[in-house]
Amino acid sequence: MQQERASSPSGRWIDLEEVSKVSSLARLGLSEEELEGLARQLDQIVAAVAKLSEADVSGVDPTAQVGGLHNICRDDEPRPCLSAEAAIGNASQTSAGLLRVPAIQ
């Protein structure tokens, strides 16, 4: 899938540009100053979790879930829904029963 990376060429584990990209992807809306602060902290944290690279995981399968369950399904039976009022009752902006957001481009 993707290649592994052991460390950053700049000597930092994660740089401002990457933190900025991550903030944008996650819609965190951080200011320049906040990004710089976060970059410093993330750099330390990523350096710490990079300890993972020392673990010998050759031949080990990944574990996404621990329950060991399979084929948990439900029958195709419709059941009553929430009322439309309850469905949008917590929304800050609505219009004629619909949720309102700034226009998609």
């Binding site: 592994e4 990376r5 673990a55 995981v57 990944p62 574990t63």
Partner: peptide, 11 residues
Amino acid sequence: AYYLRAQKVRT
């Protein structure tokens, strides 16, 4: 490097 490896360590 991170997520997949962490899942293997989880195993």
